[in-house]
Amino acid sequence: MPVKPAVSVVASPAAEKTTPSSPAPVSPVREFLNTRGSGRLADTSFAALMLACACSIFVIVLFIFWILIQNSHLSLAAFGWKFFTREAWDPVSGDFGALPFIYGTLATSLLALAMAVPLALGVAIFLTELCPRPLRAPISFLTELLAAIPSVVYGLWAVFVLVPIMRDTLGPFLVKTLGWTGFFEGANFGVGLLTASIILAIMILPIISSLTRDIMTAVPHSQREAVLALGATRWEMIRIGVLRNSRIGIVGAVMLGLGRALGETMAVTMVIGNHPEIHKSLFAPGYTLASVIANEFAEATGDLYYSALIEIGLALFLVTIVVNAVARLMVWAVTRGAPSRAS
């Protein structure tokens, strides 16, 4: 809305009278326009309506927060902060702790990041710096398609394609080559932490790579030329002219991917094995915050059980809010903040 001019502007009906200086007959067009009011009421109500809708976004976030707090108070009162460090999950005796889920969530998300970030960076570098121009649009389009595939479809594919591969090919191979690390022990059924991490990595790749690409494109061309002009090879130009200038944004993009991985539900639920225990082995079945809600919420009979699940949802909500907020600030800092840093 325009700032009020220093002079006070008051609509007066007197202004509607035609000016005496024009004695000529008034045209129908002018006559009509002179009868139209200032439209101030319509303008004000329109602005208010738009503002209300915009504020509804705040309201939604606060509302989610409030509802989750309200509904988890039983569990909050019963377990307090210990809830997040206890390993027990026994609906029958009413003993709840979220540690196995936190472990499962962190393990799968971080493992997924470890797999996805180098690949995403590679794709972004390829797309912005190396890719022949005619290939650029189709490849970035394909990676965007990857982002549009619903979680449940990834899950379906994972259940019928990835799980058998893990069980019969990749699993035994890992045992043979990396078995000594102790991360690949125990029975391998194909479902478990590792499978969940792989499907998560596939799912967050497009997000990270397309954001990283945007950020790297935002680096001014002069930066690249400056480095090239010093006799750098292309890789040195990318490392010094591009990556160094956009690292904050890239960290932000990675965190956005992390936010998505933490909250990802369906695909993970379908392949992680759903067992609330903490194992070192990546073949072992696990459980994540999101998947325990998806699996047990509908059957949560007792009030405390229900409340404990809501508290898990609350934790997930708060963590993703923080991760996303920090990530957005980082991405914004690069893509809209002054990109032309003096060199």
């Binding site: 502007v9 007066s12 326009l33 002179n34 139209r36 101030r40």
Partner: peptide, 11 residues
């Protein structure tokens, strides 16, 4: 600035 709204003037 005192006797009319911006919209009326612009018309």
């Amino acid at each position: 600035y005192r006797e009319a709204s911006p919209v009326e003037i612009r018309r």
